[in-house]
Amino acid sequence: MLREEAGRRGLSPIQARFLVYLLHRPVELRRVGELAREFGLTPATASGAVDALQRKGLLVREEWPEDRRYVTLRLTGAGRSIAGELSGWSGAVREPLGELGGEEKEVLLGALLRLVASLQREGLVRARMCLSCRFFRPDAHPGRERPHHCALLDVPLAVRELRVDCPEHELHVQGGGG
C-alpha cells in the first residue's frame, strides 16, 4: 500500500518511508546518518533521497540548536501532511484494537514484541526494543503487575510499558555457549 501511495505522490518508496520515519521521531534522530543506519543504506544513498525530498519542498535541513556541527531534518507543512496520510493505514488497525480489553491488548502486545524480536534476531528488522536490550530482565519480578525490569533505569516494567523504539537501547549480544 505504501509503495502504491508513494508512487501516486511522485515519491520513491524510500522517500515515503523517510517521511513517515521523520514524522514519528524525536529531533535528535532526524539526521541523514540516522536514516542511513535505520534503513541499512549508505550515507550517500540516504543523502540523495533527502536531497530529493528537499527539492520537492517536503523537508528542510536545519542546524541543530545545541550543536551547530550537526544538521537535523524538519518536515515542512506539506511534508507532515503527506507523511500523516502515508501512515494513515494505522486507522484500520485502531478500531479493532479499541474493541479489545486491557488484558487482551497486553497479551497481543507481548506476542507482537516477541515476533519482532524473532525477526530482529534473523536480521529482517531493526528495532530498539526492550526484548533485545542488554538492560532488559524478563520476569525479574514474577507474579507481579510489573514483572519485567530495566536495569538501566532500575525500574520494574509491565508489558504495556515495554518500548519498541528506545534511544537508550543497547543490543543484547548472546554468547556462543561455553
Rank of each mutant, 00 (worst) to 15 (best):
M1Q: 13
L2C: 03
R3C: 05
R3Y: 09
E4A: 15
G7P: 00
S12M: 06
S12C: 07
I14N: 02
R17S: 15
L19V: 04
L19Y: 03
Y21M: 00
L23D: 10
H24S: 08
R25P: 02
P26H: 11
P26V: 12
R31P: 00
R31W: 00
L35G: 02
L35H: 02
L35Q: 08
A36Y: 02
E38R: 14
G40T: 04
L41V: 03
A44S: 10
T45I: 07
T45Y: 13
T45V: 08
G48L: 12
G48E: 06
A49Q: 13
A49K: 00
D51G: 03
A52S: 11
K56M: 15
K56E: 08
G57D: 01
G57I: 00
G57F: 00
V60Q: 13
V60D: 02
V60L: 11
V60M: 04
V60I: 14
R61T: 06
W64S: 13
P65G: 01
P65M: 03
E66L: 11
E66F: 08
D67C: 05
R69M: 12
Y70H: 08
Y70W: 12
V71L: 12
T72P: 01
L75Q: 01
T76E: 00
T76K: 00
R80P: 01
R80F: 01
I82G: 01
G84C: 06
G84T: 05
E85G: 15
E85P: 00
W89N: 05
W89Q: 07
S90Y: 09
G91F: 12
A92L: 15
R94D: 13
R94Q: 15
R94C: 10
E95T: 12
P96F: 11
G98N: 06
L100V: 03
L100S: 08
E103Y: 03
E103W: 07
E104F: 03
L112N: 07
L112R: 14
L115F: 14
A117T: 05
R121H: 09
G123W: 08
V125M: 07
R128L: 06
M129R: 08
M129P: 05
M129E: 14
S132G: 09
S132P: 02
R134C: 06
F136W: 05
F136I: 11
D139R: 15
H141E: 14
H141Q: 12
P142H: 11
G143H: 05
R146F: 07
R146M: 08
H149S: 07
A151C: 07
D154Y: 02
D154P: 03
V155N: 07
V155R: 14
V155F: 07
L157G: 05
A158N: 04
V159Q: 13
R160T: 07
R160K: 12
L162Q: 13
R163Q: 15
R163H: 14
D165M: 11
D165K: 12
C166Y: 04
E168I: 04
E168M: 08
E170C: 03
E170D: 11
H172Y: 15
H172L: 15
Q174T: 10
G175E: 13
G176F: 09
